[in-house]
Amino acid sequence: MSATELLTTPLNALHIELGARMVPFAGYSMPVQYKSGLMAEHLHTRTQAGLFDVSHMGQLQLIGPDAAAALESLMPVDVIDLPVGRQRYGLLLNDEGGVIDDLMFFNQGNDTLFLIVNGACKVGDIAHIQARIGGRCQVMTMPTQGLLALQGPQAVTALSRLVPGVEKLVFMSGGSFDWNGAALFITRSGYTGEDGFEISVPGDRAEALARALLAQPEVAPIGLGARNSLRLEAGLCLYGNDIDTRTTPPEAALNWAIQKVRRTGGARAGGFPGADLVLAQIDDPASLTRKRVGLVALERVPVREHTELHSLDGQKVGQVTSGLLGPSVDKPIALGYLPPQLAAVGTRVNAMVRGKAVPMEVAPTPFLPPRYYRG
């Protein structure tokens, strides 16, 4: 795709003004880093507050009295019992139990659910949702909305100056706010392992809000490069790398996202696409042929995605799906897939980097303790 064919977000001119290096991402021209560089941006987010443009993500609402039950029919998660004002992580599955996309959904009340889906998947997601449940609820896309993420331990300090009241939110809660006449929808959540917020803002007000946030002394602009290193330290999956349509939730170690009411007994157990396979894998973990794990290299050699993983006797046993030198943990970390018998914490394997065996050890995730604000 040529530069002229790429879509742009409402902050495109601001990124260029700030000296961002722009790259194609999910069909958009997006900032991968600014002048200070990935390392500085990563560490700034961990210590102060970083502002991310995530307007390429898809935003939509499902509206109607049957919206929650309809969405629950597409995912192995509890949608119906999600309280008003709360958010939850969800997984759209195909009929083979593979992950079409991972997403966040929020109960706004008044029979309305607000969804944020991945940018590269949004067209397909919306078509899938419309085809499967469009007759049961209104599927309203929000293509003119911008989306900003403010992440880091000083995010609440900076945002509450502009939008008083956000400090009362706790992790995975949210609400409607006003900023200079602009209607904002803000959740206390994010993709970095830090405290922070995601802010849905009308596209024509996104640049003004971004400039107001960047005027706060704690806030710096952060690109996709640091967004990736931050989420990997937090042990969070990247769709298309760590999970995809060929990956089931149990293989991806995402059983925690499947609430008990959808797993065992009762009228709401199962009933989602691929339920028979997914529930069988949960009931019998030995039936899995692979499992997502965290890995730490025992030498200071970054191990990138697609790197083969070999057993200590030289057999290919898996592959790295995400990997880099973690700026905060200061060691090479990765996510990847291994057979269940090699997935226990402490197990040693070798990553084959340019023909050289780099020893790695299965490690618990997240690699860095999360700092979400739970009140």
Rank of each mutant, 00 (worst) to 15 (best):
L325C: 11
L312A: 08
V296S: 02
L325D: 13
D313A: 04
G318D: 05
E299P: 12
L298W: 00
Q319Y: 09
V303W: 01
H306L: 00
S287T: 11
T289I: 13
E308G: 08
A297S: 14
R290N: 06
P302A: 13
G323A: 10
D284A: 15
G294M: 07
L325H: 15
A297V: 08
A297T: 08
D284E: 15
Q315R: 00
L288P: 05
S287D: 08
G326K: 09
L312G: 06
V303D: 08
T321W: 10
D283T: 01
K291E: 05
G294K: 08
V301D: 02
Q315P: 05
R300I: 00
L288N: 01
R304C: 10
L309C: 02
S287M: 15
S287V: 08
E299Y: 03
V301I: 04
L312C: 10
H306A: 11
H310P: 07
E305W: 06
T289G: 03
V317Y: 06
A286V: 12
I282H: 12
S311H: 02
K316L: 08
L295D: 03
H310Y: 08
L288A: 05
D313C: 03
G314L: 04
G326M: 12
E299N: 15
D283K: 13
V320W: 05
D283C: 12
K291Q: 10
L288W: 03
E299W: 09
L324K: 12
E299A: 14
V320F: 10
P285Y: 10
D284I: 06
R290P: 04
T307K: 05
S322C: 06
P285F: 14
K316V: 15
S287E: 04
T307F: 04
S311E: 10
I282K: 10
K316W: 01
V293S: 00
H306G: 10
L288I: 09
G314Q: 06
L295P: 00
Q319T: 15
E308I: 11
T307R: 01
K291P: 02
L312V: 15
V296H: 04
L288T: 05
A286S: 13
H306M: 01
P302G: 11
T289V: 14
D313V: 14
E299D: 03
Q319D: 07
S287C: 12
H306D: 05
Q319W: 02
A286L: 13
L309H: 05
A286G: 07
V296E: 10
G294D: 09
G326E: 11
R300T: 02
D284K: 14
E308R: 13
H310E: 11
S311W: 00
R290V: 10
V301K: 09
S322G: 08
V301A: 09
D313N: 10
Q315S: 12
V317T: 12
V301W: 00
R300L: 00
S311L: 06
G323Y: 06
L288F: 03
G294N: 02
